[in-house]
Design a protein around this nucleic acid. Structure first.
Lengths: 170, 170
DNA sequence: TCCGATAGACAAGCGGCTTGACTAAATAGT
DNA sequence: ACTATTTAGTCAAGCCGCTTGTCTATCGGA
């Protein structure tokens, strides 16, 4: 191999390494942004909900509301939705019951199960959370435009498997 | 007000309500996707790292690596980076030290502080994580194309404040 | 040269989740 | 129809990672 070839090969390796490093930095940046985006959403909504007077709840409770508000939810459904054990979901629902956000009614066809439903207070809290989320997204749309926000949603939907809306304990 | 006006007004309200509901569903979908995207990243990288033999670590440790690998990090820096107390960071670093991922050397100019650095094992783990992240992103690019992935990153950067890369305890 | 501020570690406590064990009710098997 | 297995849910105990509280050693400014 001639010297020129070796030089070009070494230069190629340097360029490839530099490109790798740049790509890696981009990847880390995107990962960080996604983490921060999720945290921003959760914190923003939770803060607004607390400011609205529902200050005895944590974000996890809100995740549970998402499932319970859909109707026909049992404790087991909530557990699956959150990606936690039934025991954890049971405690969570018990707490929501004690605090007046959720009621447990007998299941019409299964005497073992209990059907969960939001109380008026639970619905009020849900509306506050929805408002906060809408406000946040309006802010995003004001910066990016509705079209790019929609593109964001569509692109993510293509690459992200929709799993449980869990408390994210990591 | 004539009857026709009232009818039109009522119809307008119905349409507005329907639009609100659709917008709200879109917002919830985007929020869910962002949460799932973050979880997918964290779980994917963590799983790959564990599979690579570093099975005594949790995602939080990886977040700490991000800061420590940058160099010139103290326990306090890690604490700020993770958004936890100095005590928590101290315990975390202590664990990483015991497990052979991090060393604590005396700070050159401040006898109170300790300068943190990754060991060879720590670097190997970091490389494994970087590889896993790159693989994940390659998968995304294969579906969306590199251009849209870049657009994703750019758009998020415009609306998301870069906060601490914290353990996300919610 | 003090004296408040800072870096870090030690100790105790707590909150939220897990595993384990149990009851009651539904479903399957024969 | 009767038993055996599965399933919904709760009670209890334990664990893990973080927090608050306290302390020492060191830094830096008046």
């Amino acid at each position: 191999m001639r010297d020129g070839d070796m030089q070009r090969a070494a230069e190629g390796r340097r360029e490839a390494a530099a490109a790798d490093q740049a790509a890696q930095a981009d990847n880390l940046a995107l990962a960080t942004l996604l983490l921060s985006a999720a945290a921003t959403l959760v914190d923003g909504i939770h803060g607004a909900v607390m400011a609205a007077g529902f200050d005895d709840l944590r974000p996890t409770h809100g995740f549970a509301f998402v499932r319970i508000s859909r109707g026909d939810a049992t404790v087991g459904d909530v557990a699956e939705h959150l990606g936690v054990t039934k025991q954890a979901a049971s405690q969570l629902v018990d707490e929501l019951d004690r605090k007046g956000y959720v009621t447990r009614r007998p299941h019409p066809t299964d005497a073992r199960a209990r059907l969960l439903a939001l109380t008026p207070r639970g619905w009020a809290c849900t509306r506050a959370a929805d408002r906060a989320m809408a406000d946040l997204m309006e802010g995003w749309a004001a910066v990016l435009g509705g079209k790019r926000v929609a593109a964001l949603r569509a692109d993510l939907a293509r690459v992200v498997p929709v799993g449980p809306l869990r408390p994210a304990a990591w």
